[in-house]
Design a protein around this nucleic acid. Sequence first.
DNA 1: CGAGAACGCGCG
DNA 2: AAAGCGCGCGTTCTCG
Length: 600
Amino acid sequence: MAKSNNLKYELVSTFRRLHAVVNRCKKLGETALDFETTSLSPASGRVRLVSLRNTKTRVLVDFDRIKGGFGKCARLFEGGTWIVFYSGFEGRWFRAAGADPMLYDVGFLRRAILGGGRFSLANMALWDLNIEMSKDEQASDWGSRLTRSQLDYAYFDAYVTWRLWRGWAKQADEGHWSAFHMLNDMVPAVIEMEDAGMLFDSEQHAKLVKDWYKIHRQKTKLIRGLVPTGEVANINSDSQWSDYFAARLPDTILSGWPRTEKTGQLSMKVETLRRLGAHFHGTPMQTFMDGLADYKKVSKYLSSFGESLITSANLAHDGRIHARYNIGAAKTLRFSSSGPNVQQTPRDFDLLGKFTSIRKSFVAPRGMRLVSLDYSGIELRVLALLSGDEQLLDDVVNGDVHAEVAAVVAGAPIDRTTRAGKAARQSAKGISFGIIYGSGAMGLAATMRTSVDRAQGYIDFWQDRYPDAFRLRYDMMDEVSRTRRIRMVEGGTVYMGKKPDLPKCANYPVQRAALSVMAMAIKRHKNSLDDCRWAEKQKRSRMLATIHDALIDEAATRDAKLLLKIMERDMIAGYLDIFPGAPTERLVEGGTGPSWGELN
DNA sequence: CGAGAACGCGCG
DNA sequence: AAAGCGCGCGTTCTCG
């Protein structure tokens, strides 16, 4: 790329000049800002360079040449509004230096307008400005004498950030700004959660893992007793198992065996293995297919939730698992979690007759408790509110949607106390989820393992009882046809491409509304905790995690019950922020306890 | 050898 | 035209 005048900048190396520049930025309004640091964390490094860019400012500051460095200057930035990419990074450095300036994350503006995503500054530069950013200097040494190329590189980030901000701000309307602030305002809470992490009981967990290895060995032995490596070389290879079964089983079985989408192999899902294995009832083939299913199950837990979690905890030196919570990562702006993804931590389950709880390994420290609440049935509730469906709202708040639907499926009212009644209700949940996910009769029939006719009957009933809720999807389809976007409850939009897609049109507004409710709750709850701590009460209370419709905190044991009430208040208030005047009965449920697996 | 596709599966 | 949503991550396997 050709060097242009855009890339000329002033190198600032005195406090006096910095002071003047920052003051002018504050007067002008928003200014793009970017750090180059000597390490990734304030605990082990320092801020070397700050680049600044707005309509009138083109500056690169070298803090190694200013007495006291960044630490002495950080508070100068308070009172301004600074545009950054991934504000969690700059925010931590400012906070470590005792400063708390207003940071706006340009990525959030893009997400508010198009609908989520995870991307780097280089991605945005390429997609939105058609600029290729080199990464050559990214990992270079920012601690010693800097080359011209390093200085240019450092300034270029602020230049790109500024252009991106200008571009997106130009097309943002009032609703987009509301979605932007919804995301931006969650940053302090997310920093708190990521820095806190969750204490992990590695000793306790190691016992679980040991049990899993034992089962793993047993099942390997069983499988290898029947199928030696000469026939299937890799026991973990689904495609090799597919070949194995395809060569040995009769067409009557193979014709009914589901195939994978891209390659057409026999699908090796655990559920499929068990279902088809039942066709060989009482034979060695069933023993074998069940054994393979067991093997796959325990392999999953070993590879995803075994030693890797222990390693995560040990890696962090405080024995805690520090997951990341990626704000607005999903198209609907839901969070994602990574490194590890604690949002996918298994619920308690039965492993070959043995009760197993991975969540019990996530514990509160001595003298403390975990505090957690979740919004119950939030998606059906917000669907009712978004669509103004009085019947659905009444059933969700005062009745039992799943029981109503189950009664139709059964042809008579169900008894929730019997095993059959519970199963019927559980199955009916699938119908309502199908509706929320925009399923047609085909998809619902496949999921529920019933006929298309029956599935259509369920959908018809649902539409008949909840007509307004059912119509929402078609209103959204219309909107997409006209605008290629869906306007979400808090004002943001999701770009839907050229073709309206029914399942997405049915689901996105619901998923987004649930996120918006949680976003309000998270912001309120962080403020509540800051207030508590400021008042020297609940000094040890912290936010730890958000699992989509749930929050987890940690508090001293004597504070736990009070914190639970505060959390409840904040979550209800967050819901009312999005749906003023909506009914709040039975909105949240949860409790406190010594671990994530034991909350009462 | 590394990157990416495909598949499967954990969660809400 | 295609039709249950959204994620992250582990493993295998192919491709260059």
